[in-house]
């Protein structure tokens, strides 16, 4: 009886341990082994020493894919925060139909990224796309949303913002509700206007939410894949090649398993480093 009680917790957590061994510990270990090999899965593995690492540091496309991912984040995160905060601020007022508006903003969040991407590919179309028809209608002219290498990544970042912003609106709404109303009342007495109240009270109070949004969008941005996969295939001129798309291409298109594993490992370190740095900033701020 005592014995049984002792085993029981282990029985309960055993599925996790098995899963951890099979799908986390072993893969990570194997991944490291793979980085020293050349392997196309159909022929035997071949030990190549540090070749994959040397190749990685000389691989312009991979370096480009990382800088593309960073460009994406630099556009996406501030845009996301500004739009989400703005709309959350509005929804936080006493307005009619608040639930309906919130529901509308949230709609793209629940829909698959595949749907959103197929849809926006049409909106971004050059000659008959809705956006360009609108722009030519008001006399601005056509823009190569997905075909101009200087613009394509920004277009994808805007689309990603459109897709995710609803979630962050809700997160900010939660954050805004934690701000005590007395603060605003006190500010009203002092005759502060809307903007002053926003910058002096709201912004500092919801700092934690902002940081959470930054981290969540960073992790999301680092896994950017399906959007460029469907919309641009990583082009034009590799300007939308994301790191995950490139790893996918090396692994499942050319079957360079060893090299793809090396890219994955290296990229994972970059992600961890960036997230660590962000966390440092948060802790310093509090």
């Amino acid at each position: 009886m005592i014995n049984k009680k002792k085993i029981l917790p282990y029985l309960l957590v055993s599925p996790y341990l098995v899963h951890f061994m099979l799908f986390v510990a072993f893969p990570v270990g194997f991944s490291i082994v793979l980085t020293f090999h050349k392997w196309n899965i159909i022929s035997p593995m071949e030990f190549t020493g540090l070749n994959n690492y040397i190749r990685l540091f000389n691989d312009k496309t991979f370096i480009r894919s990382i800088s593309n991912t960073l460009i994406f984040l630099v556009i996406h995160i501030p845009l996301q925060i500004i739009v989400a905060l703005f709309l959350a601020e509005i929804l936080n007022q006493k307005i009619k139909l608040r639930g309906a508006f919130r529901g509308a903003f949230f709609l793209p969040v629940i829909v698959s990224g595949v749907v959103v991407t197929i849809l926006w590919q049409q909106l971004y179309g050059y000659d008959t796309g809705l956006l360009n028809r609108l722009l030519t209608g008001i006399g601005i002219g056509k823009i190569g949303w997905l075909t101009d290498p200087n613009i394509a990544m920004a277009s994808i970042a805007v689309m990603a913002t459109w897709k995710n912003v609803g979630l962050y609106i809700v997160l900010f709404l939660v954050g805004l509700q934690t701000v005590p109303t007395q603060y605003y009342e006190a500010a009203d007495l002092e005759g502060a206007n809307h903007l002053q109240k926003f910058f002096r009270i709201t912004l500092p109070m919801i700092n934690p939410t902002i940081f959470m949004v930054v981290i969540l969008s960073t992790i999301g941005g680092f896994s950017l894949f399906i959007e460029p996969y469907i919309m641009t295939g990583g082009g034009p001129l590799n300007s939308t090649m994301s790191a995950v798309l490139y790893i996918y291409k090396q692994g499942f298109f050319y079957y360079h398993m060893g090299y793809a594993a090396t890219l994955g490992l290296f990229f994972a370190f970059i992600i961890l480093a960036v997230v660590m740095i962000q966390k440092k900033f948060i802790e310093k701020d509090h």
Partner: peptide, 15 residues
């Protein structure tokens, strides 16, 4: 020890 037994049993069933 139990832990390892359990892992082995579950692993076997997966296989």
């Amino acid at each position: 020890k139990y832990l390892f037994n359990i892992i082995i049993v579950v692993l076997l069933s997966y296989v």
